[in-house]
Amino acid sequence: MAHKPAALDHKVRNSKTLLLQLAEQRGLAGLLHGDSPQSFGDRFNIRRQLEQAARQKNLETIMALANQEASDQVGNEPDPDWLSHFLLLAENIRHPAMQQFWASILLQEIARPGHCSIQALNCLKNMTQKDALLLQKASALSCHFGDENLRLIFGYQHRTLLQGLRQQKLNLGKYRLPYAGLMQLFELGLLHQTELESGDLAAMAQLKLHLAPIRLLLHPHRKGTRLLYYRFSAIGNELARLMSEPTPDDYLQELSTLLAFLGRLEQQE
């Protein structure tokens, strides 16, 4: 008895089939079907209509997603120039996850006009979904202390007379933020590439680290100790604050263990 070939998953397509499908979706399959009764001009007009319809669909989808998340909270009308620029950029956003993010940005701008700058929108427009996920992960691992600028702590250094300079670092790759991901955030201008260090912690009576959604209070007792971190750029700060992913529990535990070596540590909700 002959065995029937296993049915192919409908999502599994060879490159020829996929190319044909993409060409038909974008109105570019005229020469792939042999002679066409339509002229190049006619096919151009059809493609232009398809593109315009796709842009309209993108905007309506983003508006529908924003409407689903909207509440009865009092809002304010965004700046007209900002809204025009937002719509101009958002009409080309096709990926569902990115459409959801743009919908969230619109809602936050209605709640607090001026929350997201046009420069941040321009940067976001050039980001892929992978870029946005990297920024979301970096945002979840970030904190701020001393001021409102977000920082990504990756360790500390400790200098002693007998042992010299010692460093202890976290492995951010464990939390889906490998060094290659950091490099991508550097190239996008969302993180400053320079590794920075805080001032001497011994000079501080208390260090407050604000994470989402908790706060750590560190009472340092070791002299010559400084935190090591990357600092978010101005646009990186804006976009990272639009993210809503909380600090992972395992990262919080490892960071707490790291900081506990430096002094007494308290955690507040």
Rank of each mutant, 00 (worst) to 15 (best):
G34H: 06
A90M: 04
Q49I: 05
L8S: 07
D250H: 14
K4P: 00
E60S: 10
Q21D: 05
L20F: 07
L259M: 10
L265A: 13
P248H: 08
I46K: 15
Q56P: 01
L152Q: 03
Q119F: 08
G34E: 01
M127Y: 03
D42E: 14
L18T: 00
S104P: 00
F261N: 12
Y179K: 13
K208Q: 14
L32G: 00
P5N: 12
G41F: 07
T225F: 01
R94D: 10
S244E: 15
L124M: 09
S39Y: 08
Q136C: 09
K223V: 10
Q108T: 12
C123W: 06
R47A: 01
L170D: 06
A111D: 04
L134A: 01
Y175A: 13
E24W: 04
L19F: 15
L87F: 10
Q253N: 06
H33V: 00
L65G: 01
Q184W: 07
A260G: 11
R166T: 10
Q167P: 02
P246M: 14
L22S: 09
G30S: 12
T247M: 15
E148P: 02
S104L: 04
S15D: 06
D131A: 03
Q100H: 02
H221R: 15
W82G: 03
S71F: 01
L162S: 15
Y230S: 03
L191K: 08
L196T: 00
F86Y: 15
H33K: 12
L217M: 12
K4T: 03
K208Y: 09
L177I: 06
L207Q: 04
K4N: 07
L88H: 11
H221P: 00
